[in-house]
Design a protein around this nucleic acid. Structure first.
Lengths: 254, 254
DNA sequence: TCGGCAAAATTGTGATCACATTGACATCGG
DNA sequence: CCGATGTCAATGTGATCACAATTTTGCCGA
């Protein structure tokens, strides 16, 4: 039997690692954060359906707040509703990947430059600490820690400014990247990744907007080109036929 | 007594003009489209609260699908939930306006260029027809017709391609612009607007990507600069004090 | 052994109800 | 006449129930 629904890990766990975060705010908000976190860190794999009652039981809440959280996440592109009205983690293909990278390159340098004047010394120190944590995760090959650190690094920059428009757009892009990146790193490992964040840190310390934009752009392009050449534009589909279950998220057109 | 909740026009109208569109699909989807349309065409004014039961009664449905529609629209930035958990049409200020314009300039030329190869003769004809309708609306001073036509023109271009990433982002931006633009046009009129769409049509006919991108950029910048100088960066707040109710959407900082 | 076919379980959707909290309103005291 | 305070309506939130559509499962016959 093949499970076609995703249960976010341990369903009946008394202390689940899908912790809805802090216990403040409405329940649907906590469910939203939990779902979003599971998506960004890649704990939910593409190709699996996300069911209302399943997710509700997995988080120990009623289906009602899950409904609103799913609607919210799907509005941000993290989930898609099929024609059957069932909710899926969207598959990645070369066209969507290209569009996502292009959107990131257009928006993130702009957001970084706009946030630059608001980055104080404390935040710069935090950025350096995150960068070191990323290096450790990279050295140890810890995929999840790397992804979490990378996310924190970028948004520690973008969220410095009072942005209320660019930031949600960029979060939507990361939300769409998360599940795909996780399975990619799970396959190719983190050894191929280089740390470009130090350039961004130097540019911020020097208050150099142009260099910061270029560092962000290079960071995005570098990581993405590796994925692009390694996974997405593979010439043959031989590996898919040899191990069909190990690659549930790639949908190479043609 | 001042009404603080928006009722989307006629509440008990047997044939409301807030038609949820085509009658297919789930109810919450129809409510979503109705709400989104009301926002984009500016039928809901900033500063008014959108209540669940009010909107439900206004559309003749139960509060349940309205809940999901509101959650969806708020995820796209068309509505904001206050600390009181009440839902408002967000106010516009100079900073948010600037960010919205910048995001439009970054994303829309890219989307247009990507869609260009997929624009066939039929779509080009449709674009010309929409452009003529816009000219008529402009000549007659019909604000709502102009806004609807302008929206249709841009998205007739962007939606030509198979975009599934850029398009939702751009729709989110328009959703945030809608209510503000409406009240702006209601004040300054449509006489100040110039039609830049003909340049885009020419560029499409010539298959010139650079000229198309430049036409889109000019169209955005021109319309926005007018607003910027006319309404947003007004030197004094004298008009606000003279007629406080006629200007419920502007929040000039400082 | 394999391909339809019907039964059963599961899913999303919508409605209704109960409850805590917020906001507005009227009343009362100064 | 004005401000404080208590009351009451209204709002968002969450849960539960019913229903239709879809999916899965089990079974029978070829």
């Amino acid at each position: 039997m093949v499970k076609r629904t995703s249960d976010l890990g341990a369903p009946a766990d008394p202390s689940p690692d899908d912790d809805p975060g802090s216990d403040d705010g409405p329940l649907h908000d906590r469910v939203y954060r939990a779902l979003r976190d599971a998506l960004v860190t890649g704990r939910i794999v593409p190709g699996r359906a996300v069911t209302l009652r399943g997710l509700a039981q997995s988080l120990g809440v009623s289906p009602m707040p899950v409904r609103e959280a799913i609607r919210r996440v799907s509005a941000e592109g993290g989930l898609v509703v099929g024609a059957n009205r069932r909710v899926w983690v969207p598959d990645m293909d070369a066209a969507r990947f290209d569009e996502l990278v292009r959107a990131r390159i257009l928006l993130e340098p702009e957001a970084a430059v706009r946030a630059l004047p608001h980055i104080d010394a404390a935040r710069l120190d935090r950025l350096r600490a995150i960068d070191e944590a990323i290096d450790r995760a990279l050295a140890e090959g810890d995929v999840e820690a790397y992804m979490a650190g990378n996310h924190r690094f970028h948004f520690e920059i973008y969220a410095a400014g009072p942005s209320r428009v660019l930031l949600p757009l960029i979060e939507s892009l990361w939300l769409q990247f998360g599940p795909f990146m996780r399975s990619v790193y799970g396959r190719v490992g983190t050894a191929i990744l280089v740390d470009h964040h130090v350039h961004a840190v130097e540019a911020i310390a020097a208050r150099d907007a142009d260099r910061l934009a270029e560092a962000i752009r290079a960071d995005i392009l570098d990581g993405m080109e590796v994925i692009d050449d390694t996974v997405l534009r593979r010439p043959t589909g031989s590996e898919t036929s040899s191990s069909p279950e190990s690659d549930p998220c790639l949908h190479v057109p043609g």
